[in-house]
Nucleic acid binder design. Structure first.
Lengths: 148, 148
DNA sequence: TTTACTGCAAAGGGTTTGCAACATG
DNA sequence: CATGTTGCAAACCCTTTGCAGTAAA
């Protein structure tokens, strides 16, 4: 098995834990997701990797999500779900979303803001009786192209 | 028209601006949304207000959204969209979501955290060429009932 | 009385699944 | 070879819409 890189290693490890094989279709999915600059819809993914049949792509994205390799997102303005590689493989980040064209871009906040926020969110959750697992921040606005 | 309260006044004002009437079905929707402790799905709303027919409820929620009275949310874990009264009528807030049962609860953050965050998010957006309109924070965890 | 609105039933459309053939380890 | 996986096509299910009748201002 040539061409192994750190991301593939991590993917294979998670696949093994779930008795899943790293088939050619799953390789294409991972390659397509990695080549994107943010979460992509299924049509966008099929456009990046045209050899993927739709039903297998959906089926494998669901399996990869269960294995902790993929994260599925839904965004109010789009009919399609969006997919990205999971944070353990890519690092904690948030999303900037253009309300005009729907494009989604990854962003990373300063550590000190993240920490201050974590503390505040933790206490809010506790006061409602929740145990907190993680948080999302979505920023909505208009991208440079759509304002041009 | 008796029984007007401040919320109804604000609703009527927005309806008028959009040439929409405050019909009995729309009153039931607003009453149902107001009685909930967080965003609700359509089945939940029909359960709160059983006299609402499904198609009219969906149709009116869409119109009320256009009029700035209702906000529609989609949440990864649920097949159904969720609806709440829009922030101009209720105030800025975020959501705490139970990953086990799907329930959504409104929360309000401290002003100083909101302001620090606003500044940070604004500069992130600007560095990507976006003009920022608003932000969402979703907290995911497990509610007290589901941990019991 | 004009125009918006209602509710039923049927269609729409992204996503999921049954099944028989195929690949992987 | 035993078991996971594929891809087509059909089903699913939340949501939307056409239409003929009704209610609001």
């Amino acid at each position: 098995m040539p061409d192994r890189n750190p991301l593939d290693e991590a993917v294979v490890e998670r696949l093994d834990e779930h008795d899943l094989r790293y088939t050619s279709g799953r390789r294409l999915l991972v390659r397509g997701l990695r080549s994107a600059t943010g979460p992509v819809t299924l049509p966008e993914l099929l456009d990046l990797e045209p050899d993927l049949p739709q039903s297998s792509a959906y089926r494998n994205l669901a399996l990869l999500e269960e294995a902790g390799i993929v994260r599925r997102l839904v965004h109010d303005a789009s009919d399609h779900a969006r997919f990205e590689l999971a944070e353990p493989l890519t690092g904690h980040h948030h999303h900037l979303i253009c309300e005009s064209c729907g494009v989604m871009v990854d962003i990373v906040l300063d550590d000190d803001i993240e920490h201050a926020l974590d503390r505040s969110l933790e206490s809010m959750a506790a006061s409602e009786g929740f145990s907190l697992r993680h948080h999302n921040i979505d920023l909505f606005g208009t991208c440079a192209d759509c304002r041009a």
